[in-house]
Write a protein that binds this DNA or RNA. Structure first.
Lengths: 192, 192
DNA sequence: GGGTCAACCAAGCAAGCGCTAGTGTTAAAC
DNA sequence: GTTTAACACTAGCGCTTGCTTGGTTGACCC
């Protein structure tokens, strides 16, 4: 246990780890594989991270942090109308899922591999992100743009969006913006 | 390698394996843990299954098979209106997710642990199930009940439904039927 | 009442696992 | 020009893993 800060070196290593975690899954990724990908030997890895778990936590933290920053920025830059804000959140979500794909796939699939402390810390981050969504959805409900139970609508929408990592092909004909439009049109019943 | 049929014994073992796979994840579940849960020794396990992978495939096959049967039955028993069929599919999906929860959670989380042959075999089963959905959604589009891109609508809806395994609490106040109504109301814009 | 067969067991192998200890090496800080 | 600390290496410990082997048991059958 030596460094533990968030040096640029560590950020880069984290990024490489994310890719391996996606390819192989956390449990199947060995410290030797991680080290090879990073261009160092397995022993050296523990200079940067306390243990394997900490690498996982770093990957997920990085992704969630980015999502939060991007969503906040998107909300600040868009109109105040409920529809524009809904649109902005959906697009921001999809763009993060695209640019930070590895980290988010890891977060979705390997969340349960986190130890309790890391999970506790990271769930606060995630809650902050989901709170943004609930705020935007509440506004849309209040404006009569959408209808229904706020809890359920929020979960359905986030489910639809998160599920995209399973089938979305960035090389295909549809942009994240297209998807966001289509989703918002679906739940607001206004033409895309 | 000995039996490989689908004896009742094997079905029961599969059910128990599913529970462990959900609790621990596939990779973290050892053959010794599986054997203990089944009340046998680890060596005996290989009388029923060729290897650990085959247990995973059996779990997922069982769950998908059931989902397909239940969905078909639901479609046969309901009205011919697009809305009723949409409703029936959503409810059937949620009910399977509830009653066969373990198998479906495993299918969602551990799909990538399947070896290529098993994945190929099982993806045909899954495709058959998704084809039912697309049929129902096509009908709803044709009737003007919903609007948008059929491909995207289908994926959004299935994402919203599958995501429920992450947050749905069977002991809570909402029944699968409630959820199905709310979801259909959300995409058709008719009151729940 | 010998033969068959599914079901199970005890013992253990070969490989791989996360992680540690101890030791350079390099480059900036003093 | 010595000190310091970040970063890397080699070697391997202690343990667990999936799976195999060679054998026993008891129910059923002709």
């Amino acid at each position: 246990m030596n460094v533990m800060n968030d040096s640029p070196r560590r950020k880069e290593l984290t990024r490489q780890a994310a890719q391996l975690f996606v390819q192989e899954g956390f449990d199947r990724t060995t410290v030797r594989m991680l080290a090879q990908e990073m261009g160092i030997k397995s022993g050296s890895l523990f200079h940067h991270f306390r243990d394997k778990q900490e690498i996982l936590a770093a990957v997920i933290e990085e992704g969630t942090q980015n999502a939060l920053v991007i969503a906040k920025a998107a909300l600040e830059q868009c109109d105040n109308s409920a529809e524009a804000r809904l649109q902005a959140m959906a697009r921001a979500h999809l763009e993060t899922l695209l640019t930070d794909r590895n980290a988010h796939v890891v977060a979705l699939y390997e969340w349960r591999r986190l130890d309790p402390e890391a999970r506790d810390h990271l769930s606060h981050l995630r809650d902050a992100y989901e709170a943004l969504w609930e705020e935007v959805i509440d506004a849309a409900l209040a404006e009569g743009l959408i209808h229904g139970d706020r809890f359920l609508v929020a979960r359905f929408v986030m489910g639809a969006l998160n599920w995209t990592v399973r089938w979305y092909d960035p090389a295909g004909p549809r942009s994240p913006d297209d998807l966001a439009h289509e989703l918002v049109a679906m739940i607001t019943h206004r033409p895309a």
